[in-house]
């Protein structure tokens, strides 16, 4: 196909190699992992792909954005939580099914020798690639906040590589204590880089803590997106200065002091 190619991204009609819930069949709200055979070329942790079943969906016209969890140039793995129509539709696909993918998209996490990784739930996904590709993983540690069971997030894979502290949200009443633990982790980071990915309330906690103690922190946002390529202007986030900016192109990874998450 003719391509004026800035960086060689294109739409790939790919194939699912494996799809599975972790230790069980995939039910509502469950997390599943999906391995996709797709030649996406080079990508960096924090970047994402748009994924959809082939054709133009009726109930779910849009593709869905997912951080690349890990993989290589010919195969990627995604970690997905079935929370809505689109993700549930994907969860029903089987190994061997065709799937439409475009990417890698967006900006990746900064790589530094030492970093504190803050993950909320399925937001742990991009950190698999970050840890596995990191030149000095001994400089990394993670705080992982999640609903039980932690196993469904494949966290044991990471626990074998870096120190992971888990905090569980068994009930909504646990949230204030988790937030407090997250704030302390940011404060204790000192000069180390803080990287966060998780639900928006989690990111807001990290952001306010980072601004309070002047920590250097990057947040990976998960705004609603239609196109993923910078055209629809649906995923914009307010910036501290200047016009709203696109999460898909200028993000999804932003410095904590450059974005205003009020509308997110």
């Amino acid at each position: 196909m003719p391509n004026t190619g800035l960086s060689g991204q294109r739409v790939v009609d790919a194939r699912i190699l494996e799809i599975r819930g972790v230790g069980q069949s995939i039910g509502p709200d469950d997390v599943f992992s999906m391995r996709i055979q797709a030649d996406l070329g080079e990508w960096a942790p924090g970047q994402f792909v748009m994924v959809r079943p082939p054709g133009f969906g009726l109930e779910t016209p849009w593709a869905r954005p997912f951080s690349i969890c890990d993989g290589d140039a010919s195969e990627i793995r995604l970690l997905v939580q079935a929370v809505g129509r689109g993700t549930r539709e994907l969860s029903r696909l089987q190994a061997g099914a065709r799937i439409t993918v475009w990417g890698p998209l967006g900006r990746s996490f900064q790589v530094e020798d030492e970093a504190v990784l803050l993950a909320g739930g399925v937001g742990v996904a991009p950190f698999f690639g970050y840890v596995k590709r990191h030149p000095t993983p001994s400089g990394l540690r993670m705080l992982f906040a999640h609903r039980p069971p932690g196993e469904r997030y494949l966290i044991d894979e990471l626990e074998g590589l870096i120190p992971v502290e888990r905090v569980e949200e068994r009930a909504p009443s646990d949230i204030p204590a988790i937030a407090e633990r997250v704030r302390r982790a940011v404060a204790e980071a000192g000069v180390r880089l803080v990287l966060a990915c998780g639900p928006t309330p989690f990111l807001k906690t990290v952001q306010s803590a980072a601004l309070a103690c002047k920590a250097r922190a990057q947040l990976s946002l998960e705004n609603r997106m239609a196109c993923g390529v910078g055209a629809c202007l649906g995923c914009v986030v307010r910036k501290v200065s200047g016009p709203p900016t696109r999460t898909c192109v200028e993000g999804p990874v932003f410095w904590a002091d450059e974005v205003d998450l009020e509308e997110s």
Binding site: L58, E59, T60, P61, W62, R85, G86, N223, R224, A226, C232, L233, G234, C235, V236, V237, R238, P243, P244, E263, S264
Partner: peptide, 27 residues
């Protein structure tokens, strides 16, 4: 002149389509 457009959320998926209220954000 440049326009900042509308507040978010600006888009919503619907059956066989979508709603948008971008507000002509443009430079």
């Amino acid at each position: 002149r440049p326009r900042e457009g509308n507040p978010s959320p600006r888009i919503c998926e619907t059956a066989c389509g979508m709603l948008n209220a971008i507000g002509i954000q443009n430079p």
